[in-house]
């Protein structure tokens, strides 16, 4: 018991030790972000200020176009405040993104077309469905590969090679092909997600199912265990740590697949659609808030799997 506590306490100490440096780094990033807003947005801000009747250092947007942004920023300190409050900035300030995120998640009804929760759910449902399909398929194929030498020799090289090619390039085609046979919405996106999470799971599971040593397998044989008994009691339990490692890769890939799957349909619903419509209409704040929503979603999904991993592995007696 004491050993367990010592370990947990040590981990706690380590986290506390790291909190201050991490916070500092994050604060520095936000500082740089705010600083970068001034030169990035100064030209737009000056144009708007001029229109409102203020005097600026170099009149005329065309004269300013080829000038250095930093020089302009230094010459016009009065407009610095404006660079953080533009409607369509080149780089929105962090608080603008935060306000947009708050307004589109908490203050909008979730059924609204402008709610990020609504779009996030569209993307998340495709991600989860695809992830489930890819994981189940991947595990089944891995079981087949471990038990059949012919399958191992014919499929495994292709499974490994397929990880080196940009499968994401197929995404637009899958969407359009399914569209042309009348299937729309969730399913095509889920298939892309499934495809992306499939191969990491296959490769990880094969590694995991093969992880018992020859001695352990011999031990099973001396106990007279059948093939299926040694699968359920030895191979499958020892593959779990490997499975979780590939699940974390797979869920991130699934989310990526769902987002990219939303791009070619002309962008109607989903976080990918928010990114695309934002870039069509120059709505930078919308792009950034959609980007942060995807980041939060990705981090959340990985964290959920890591949490399940920790509980499961502890229950199974790993890491003691």
């Amino acid at each position: 018991m004491r050993i367990v506590c010592a370990k947990d306490c040590a981990r706690g100490m380590l986290m506390i030790r790291n909190v201050f440096p991490v916070l500092t780094v994050v604060a520095v990033i936000f500082g740089i972000w705010y600083l970068a807003c001034v030169p990035m947005n100064i030209k737009t801000a000056l144009t708007e200020a001029e229109r409102a009747g203020a005097t600026v250092s170099t009149p005329g947007a065309r004269e300013r176009r080829d000038m250095s942004a930093i020089g302009l920023a230094l010459a016009n300190p009065a407009q610095w405040r404006d660079t953080f409050a533009l409607k369509k900035p080149r780089l929105p300030a962090p608080h603008q993104v935060a306000v947009e995120l708050w307004q589109t998640t908490v203050e909008k009804k979730i059924t609204s077309k402008r709610s990020l929760v609504f779009h996030g759910w569209i993307t998340l449902s495709a991600t989860l469905l695809g992830f489930a399909m890819g994981t189940v398929g991947g595990i089944l194929l891995a079981v087949g590969i471990v038990h059949s030498r012919a399958m191992d020799m014919s499929v495994m090289p292709w499974a490994i090679a397929s990880q080196t090619i940009p499968v994401l390039a197929i995404a637009p085609m899958i969407i359009v092909v399914f569209n042309s046979i009348g299937v729309q919405g969730l399913i095509p996106k889920a298939i892309i997600s499934a495809y992306l999470s499939f191969f990491p799971v296959v490769v990880g599971m094969v590694k995991g199912l093969r992880s018992p040593s020859a001695m352990q397998l011999d031990q099973m044989r001396t106990w007279g265990a059948s093939k299926s008994q040694s699968f359920w009691t030895l191979r499958l339990p020892s593959s779990v740590p490997y499975l979780f490692t590939s699940l974390k890769v797979g869920i991130a890939a699934s989310l990526l697949g769902a987002i990219v799957g939303e791009l070619p349909t002309g962008a109607i619903r989903g976080l990918g659609a928010r990114l695309l419509t934002g870039s069509y209409y120059g709505q930078t704040i919308q792009i950034w808030s959609a980007l942060f929503a995807t980041a939060i979603l990705a981090a959340g999904l990985v964290a959920v799997i890591a949490g399940i991993e920790r509980v499961t592995l502890k229950r199974m007696g790993y890491g003691k």
Binding site: V22, V25, A252, L275, I287, L291, T294, A298, A299
Partner: peptide, 21 residues
């Protein structure tokens, strides 16, 4: 100690999303 957790976090994100920006 500060940058590595942040880097690990960012490495797991769908960075393709920065493409429109």
């Amino acid at each position: 100690r500060g940058l590595l957790p942040v880097g690990n976090f960012v490495a797991a994100l769908p960075i393709v999303g920065t493409a429109p920006i």
